[in-house]
């Protein structure tokens, strides 16, 4: 079996605020294989973005990583000094966000911004960097790269801006791309273009992609494996088809049942009762038990651990009901 490219072990992130300490991430474990598209899915406030930012040690103030290890190429990133992290960001691990416009500097041309990133990590001349940038854009299927490079960010459409962000992310040859809701702000036809592009990159360049999204449809259509996050914990993970076609955790089941489906038109949707916890008050036992119809005393007192759901051993879920008689 190949070594994972990235392994997150027992990650905890806390935000100290005036209202109290927010437990944003509560012991996340996950592994991303080389060349894999890995989905991290959950609703707002589940800790998926914070997990993504933790990998690059970019958790914003007042957040702090309080425990855990993040292994990348045999090294624990959490023990690395800031200077070493700057080298890793962009060079080895790159990140793109929901709103490309806020990540691009409005007063410089796109070409200027891409070449600057290239020159920060590689000792090449301005011309070489420019050619390399144009090559990357061309590689991403952007028509007329020279024109795009001479444009300012606001002159480009949202989809084109996101492509430029991907080009910047990949121009230095990063092995891992963290994509935090990369298509949420885009129209569906443009979303389809970007997803297609990310998929092609993975296949052609062998880039691993951590796809952070709230959209189960996006996960279903693009990811090899997926982890479902709830209240800062992975509650279910495994091959995408297994998790989405045969969900084992009541939360995953609830999410899937809440989706409007063409097969059940005009029938009322199944909502999950209650709302996502705020992360300040500690929930004893299973974090999902207050909203779970199947919860019993065990669920209220003991936190379930990730358990294999089927014989393959790849599909895991953190629920006390697994293994008990069905029904």
């Amino acid at each position: 079996m190949t070594e994972p490219l990235l392994r997150i072990e027992d990650l905890y992130v806390r935000f100290r605020t005036d209202e109290g300490t927010i437990r944003a991430v509560n012991g996340v474990n996950l592994e991303i294989m080389p060349g894999e598209m890995f989905g991290l899915v959950g609703e707002s406030g589940c800790g998926k973005s914070v997990t993504g930012l933790s990998i690059l040690k970019l958790v914003p103030h007042p957040g702090r990583i309080t425990r855990g290890k993040i292994w990348f190429r045999g090294e624990n990133l959490l023990e690395k000094p800031e200077s070493a992290m700057r080298e890793i960001r962009g060079r080895h691990i790159a990140m793109i966000f929901q709103d490309p416009m806020s990540s691009l500097n409005p007063v410089f041309t796109v070409g200027h911004q891409i070449t600057r990133v290239i020159r920060r990590h590689h000792h090449v001349s301005r011309r070489e960097a420019w050619e390399r940038a144009a090559g990357t854009l061309d590689d991403l299927g952007i028509p007329d790269p020279e024109r795009v490079m001479r444009s300012y960010p606001y002159e480009l459409s949202g989809g084109m801006q996101q492509r430029v962000m991907i080009a910047i992310a990949l121009s230095c040859g990063a092995e891992l791309l963290i994509a935090d809701e990369p298509t949420t702000a885009l129209d569906v036809t443009i979303q389809a273009q970007i997803l297609e592009l990310l998929n092609a990159l993975r296949i052609r360049r062998g880039v691993s992609i951590l796809m952070i999204t709230h959209d189960l449809g996006v996960v279903a259509e693009t990811c090899d494996r997926v982890a479902v996050l709830y209240a800062g914990r992975v509650v279910e993970s495994g091959p995408t088809d297994a998790v989405l076609q045969a969900p084992a955790h009541p939360y995953t089941q609830g999410l899937l049942n809440a989706l409007p489906r063409p097969s059940a038109r005009r029938k009322s949707l199944q909502a999950i009762p209650g709302s996502v916890p705020g992360g300040i008050e500690e929930i004893p036992g299973c974090p999902f038990h207050p909203r779970c119809a199947l919860a019993d005393d065990l669920c209220r007192s003991k936190t379930p651990i990730m358990t294999p759901v089927d014989s393959s051993g790849a599909h895991l879920a953190a629920c006390h009901l697994i293994g008990k008689s069905e029904g």
Binding site: T189, Q191, A220, T222, S263
Partner: peptide, 15 residues
């Protein structure tokens, strides 16, 4: 282009 969870409702992508 609308991502679908169920494989049976998924269509051939027209990009």
């Amino acid at each position: 282009a609308t991502p679908m969870v169920d494989p049976e409702t998924r269509r051939e992508r027209i990009i």
